[in-house]
Amino acid sequence: MNIFRLVGDLSHLAALIILLLKIWKSRSCAGVSGKSQIMFAMVYMTRYLDLFTTFVSVYNSVMKVVFLLFSFVTVYLIYFKFKATYDGNHDTFRVEFLVVPVAGLAVLVNHEFSFLEILWTFSIYLESVAILPQLFMISKTGCEAETITSHYLFALGIYRALYIANWIFRYYMEGFFDFIAIVAGCVQTILYCDFFYLYVTKVWKGKRLTIPA
């Protein structure tokens, strides 16, 4: 555990809490892509199956359970409790265009051809693109993203960027590297770059955020 990973994990946790609080307090999931949230739930489900097979640390297990739980609650709030406020007409990204290629890639490019390892690889690849429906939704509507949604996206994006620093650190300190995680993590971070720029130049100056289509 190093500082980059710890802050990254806390940022990841903060993102999930921000989104949950936003939906709960406003009693509305307007502007939130349910498709992205379903994909994140799939990411956690396929990656954290090792909860049943391997124990790393209490921290590791607790965080995994919390991520799973928060993610399920978010999906429940969007598709059941506050379904009436879900803006499905604008959440039109074709999820199969992401999930099918990602599943194919996970079967073809992985560390080991085993069930758990392929699911882990699938989760890494899927996480890197899971935010696209959300970004697409904001750019497509031309509507301004709520500031709180921007904070959510920033926290979620910066988490993987911090993980890249963590991987560089670990490569030099421990000699470990995971090519799959690093490449996917870089792709993921690049997808957020445009958003990061807009976030810093607009949201920090008190304006609302729009993503040009």
């Binding site: 990841h12 080991e112 390892e117 470990f176 995971d178 090519f179 995680a181």
Partner: peptide, 10 residues
Amino acid sequence: QMWPAKKDEL
């Protein structure tokens, strides 16, 4: 050295 099978990251 590649990543160990026991994955310690989240």
